[in-house]
Design a protein around this nucleic acid. Structure first.
Lengths: 161, 161
DNA sequence: TATTGTTATACTCTATAACTATA
DNA sequence: TATAGTTATAGAGTATAACAATA
């Protein structure tokens, strides 16, 4: 819960003597470079704004999915969020300990466990989702509503193939 | 150099019984979620195609920057790529050991070290940049040339503020 | 035999503190 | 005093192998 400050993208007032400008034109012509930089920028703001809830991006995504898919299994969460099963165990266990979600036996599959939000979990997700919208309004402030939609549509075309 | 295979985004044939579709509509309405998924998709392809050169994204970015900015210092690389100085040391040292770049005394600042590509480094960067273009043509195959430009322009507006 | 969830574990990535040499 | 580069190290993130219980 003790969230650390990300300093790497500060690149504040730069240096004193060697104030030479770096040519980044080639990297900036690559989709991968731009997508990664943009994602890291948004994550940085996300970590800051979501620290009041004690939620990292992965916790938020997980809770939001459970919220809209009550009874979802770990396996479904793994394939949806791209998390390996062993790494999901602690995520779910921690959110369980915090009283945000509950594990219940799956109605039809004895191996599986259905995940459900608690009352507290539902309340937090509701508030955190509002914060997520607000924070994205901030990072996308230089984009028009249409540009923002176009951007998300094009990004989805990249990862949904 | 022994690159491992990323399996998390495989989500192959999904499951047998519980083939329920997961509602991801809210997450997909968030810029951060879409940007991160797209970046990870591109990185996965990058790792695969660049494994012949033994270059990870950070190695490639570093060499490409040194190529276009001969004599660039570690400090400049750090602020450009968002890497913390202690973490850059091994990156540069490894590329030096591989004979791809050289460290030379900085002409005016005795504390600093200028980075330069070797002949082998220049050759590898040249080839790797071609491969990077090809691989991006692949991941962006469903986009028109104009859409691809729009996408990169909008991404730059997110992280250049 | 295959799958769900799990434990143990290892490797990579990212971060902080503190040092040295130079400015 | 401040900055460039470095060392040591800690913590988070991501990966594999192997197991028990159930299908």
């Amino acid at each position: 819960m003790t969230r650390r400050i990300r300093t790497f993208s500060r690149q504040t007032t730069d240096s004193p003597g060697s104030e030479a400008v770096v040519d980044t034109s080639f990297l900036e012509s690559l989709l991968g470079y731009n997508a990664r930089r943009a994602a890291l920028t948004i994550i940085e703001v996300f970590l800051d704004r979501m620290s009041v809830y004690g939620l990292r991006p992965v916790d938020f995504s997980l809770l939001s999915l459970v919220s809209r898919n009550p009874g979802i299994t770990s396996r479904q969460l793994c394939s949806t969020l791209g998390i390996l099963p062993p790494n999901l165990v602690k995520l779910v266990a921690d959110l369980d300990k915090r009283g945000l979600l509950q594990r219940k036996p799956h109605p039809t599959d004895g191996r599986a466990i259905g995940l459900h939000l608690t009352v507290d979990g539902r309340k937090m997700v509701r508030e955190a989702e509002v914060t997520a919208r607000e924070l994205e309004d901030g990072v996308a402030a230089t984009l028009t509503t249409e540009e923002r939609e176009v951007l998300m549509t094009l990004l989805r075309k990249i990862y949904k193939q």
